[in-house]
Nucleic acid binder design. Sequence first.
DNA 1: AAGTAGACCAACCGCCGGGGC
DNA 2: AGCCCCGGCGGTTGGTCTACT
Length: 283
Amino acid sequence: MGRMSCCEKENVKRGQWTPEEDNKLSSYIAQHGSRNWRLIPKNAGLQRCGKSCRLRWTNYLRPDLKHGEFSEVEEQTIIKLHSIVGNRWSAIAHQLAGRTDNDVKNHWNTKLKKKLTRMGIDPVTHKPFSHLYAEITTTFPPVQVAQLAEATLGCFKDEMLHLLTKKRFDPHQLPPHDGPYGPFVDAMGTARPLDDNVGIHGLAGLCGIGLNDGDGSGWSPSMCTGSTCTGGMDGRDGLHEKGEVDGGGEAVVGRKDSGKGSSVFGSECGFWDMSDELMNTIV
DNA sequence: AAGTAGACCAACCGCCGGGGC
DNA sequence: AGCCCCGGCGGTTGGTCTACT
């Protein structure tokens, strides 16, 4: 039995905020500040939980917020920062005056992810799909390539299927290998044997797809969120959050302790050129 | 005109870390 | 040291709007 959420403890209202509630909250905070969110709804005469008030204030009512469309510059900034810090929306939002983490997250999920996909770039790894395709076809036998293609349905199916139908797997082009299909060459160019529990899952992480262990029957497009790898890795943001691959390259994207980044994408993808100054402010 | 699907976004949920006791 | 509360965060949900059939 878990602890009740703050909104369950009291008889509080939920759902959309009314203009009167907004007025009450805004005027209370203007007078008394925003310390102690637990007391604010009580003192302001609101039947809301403190958490809901805080969210309403930080995401909508704060006077310094921008509410309009994201500019091209803002979008570029989000993409660049996401390529470095991953889904750390608050860190990204701090670099954008007047934008909240919720704004950034929503904009990423609804617009930018699709934009990158249309450009042929995997929004999870920020690598071109062609790069991923090369990794797939030089690493896996045809059966697994087909499975990957199937698992990719629902994620980036158009891009991947196009690529996967252009070239077939050629076992003779495999590099020398230690494991059943040779070492898994990850995003960092680091060779990993498949039996170290990273191989196919690592690739799945690169593709943003989820995989099951076992007989292969668990392949399912529904497992794929498009932005996170929900199977086989850490279930959250596998490659990013865990820093699965050591050595300090793309795979450190999103690591909270990452101290690198400015040149991370520049050489491999010819992609982003993040200034160290900007990096230092967010990492 | 009605129904449906997809896009968008505000709000909620659950987890985590920090601080106070 | 352990517990509790609070605030912050990222992921997810659900309502509304719009475009399409």
